[in-house]
Design a protein around this nucleic acid. Sequence first.
DNA 1: TATAAAATTTATAATCATTATAATATTATT
DNA 2: AATAATATTATAATGATTATAAATTTTATA
Lengths: 149, 149
Amino acid sequence: MNQKIDSLAKILIEKNIKPSYQRIRILQYINENINHPTVDNIFNSLVKEIPTLSKATVYNTLELFEDANLVKVITIEDNETRYDSRVHNHGHFKCESCGSIYDFEVDIDSLVVNSLKYFKINDKNVYFKGICSRCLTPNKFLAKTKIRK
Amino acid sequence: MNQKIDSLAKILIEKNIKPSYQRIRILQYINENINHPTVDNIFNSLVKEIPTLSKATVYNTLELFEDANLVKVITIEDNETRYDSRVHNHGHFKCESCGSIYDFEVDIDSLVVNSLKYFKINDKNVYFKGICSRCLTPNKFLAKTKIRK
DNA sequence: TATAAAATTTATAATCATTATAATATTATT
DNA sequence: AATAATATTATAATGATTATAAATTTTATA
Ligand SMILES: [Mn+2]
Ligand SMILES: [Mn+2]
Ligand SMILES: [Zn+2]
Ligand SMILES: [Zn+2]
C-alpha cells in the first residue's frame, strides 16, 4: 500500500512537484483510469474518499501535471477536456455513438510536412471520429459492452 | 455584386438550406476568411453591417452548415471553437506564440490503423502545435508580420 | 519548540462560450 | 388576405473554467 504511494510520490518529486496527498491521489487516479477522464470524472471519484477535496485543486494539479508532462490534454470535443496519463504519442478514436475514446498506435512521426519545414513542432496529434466496433455489432458483445455517457 | 450573392445562394439551395440574407452573409464571411474564425470573429465582423444580427443566428447557421458539410469544426484548443470552410482533409498547425492557425496538406488517408479495422471511421484529423516560422525569426519579416490574438 | 514565511488547499465568486426558450418577424401556402 | 411554417432575435439558463481571497498545512528560522 505504502509502496504504491511511495512510488507515486517519487514520480512527483522527480518532476519537482511536492507530493501532497491530493496530488498523489490525482496522479494515482489518472494512472489507473486510462480511459481519458474529465475533471468531473476525477473529482467525483476522489471526493468520495477525500470529502474535503476541492475542484479547484483538481484543476490546479492537472495544470501542474501538464507542465511537467505527466499528463496530456485531449481536446477532441470542444465541450469536454479530457486527460491522458499515457503521454507517448498515440492516436485517439472517439465513438460518436457511445462516446468512448480508444487509443491506437500510429506512426505520427512519419508524417513529414514540407510546408512546415521552418516551423518548430512541439506536439503532434491525430484523432478520428466514427462508430466503434462494439456499437456497430452490439448484440455480439452484449456481455462485454459497457455503456459510457 | 448580385452575382456573388446568387452563387452563394445557389450553394445553399443545393444543400436544401433556404438562402436567407443572414445565411448568405455568414457563408460569404467564412469563404472569404479562411483563417479559421471563431463565432465571435464572425459575429463581430458581420454585426457592423447587419446591426440586427443575433449571435444565436450565427450559432444556428454554423450548425446548419456543419450538418451540410459546408463547414468543418476545428477544435485544437478547448476554449475556442473555430470554423473552416475548407472541408477537404488537411492538417492544422497552431502557433503557441501568435495563435495563428496554418493549413497544411497531409496524406491523412495513408494512415491505416490495424486496430481500428472493424471501426467505422467518419472523420480524420491531424493537428500540430509549436512555433511558426514568423515567430521564430520575427525581425526578418517585420513588414509582413501580422499579429493575431 | 515557538514563530514566521511560504506553499497548498479550499470555498466562493466571476467569467464566458454555448444552449435553451419564447417572442417577433419573415416567407410560403391555401 | 388569412394561416401555417420557418427563421431571426432577445433574453435567460447552463456549465466548464478561471480568479480571488481566506484557511490550512508545510517548511524554514530563531
Ligand atoms: Mn490516450
Ligand atoms: Mn483549415
Ligand atoms: Zn461506441
Ligand atoms: Zn506564430
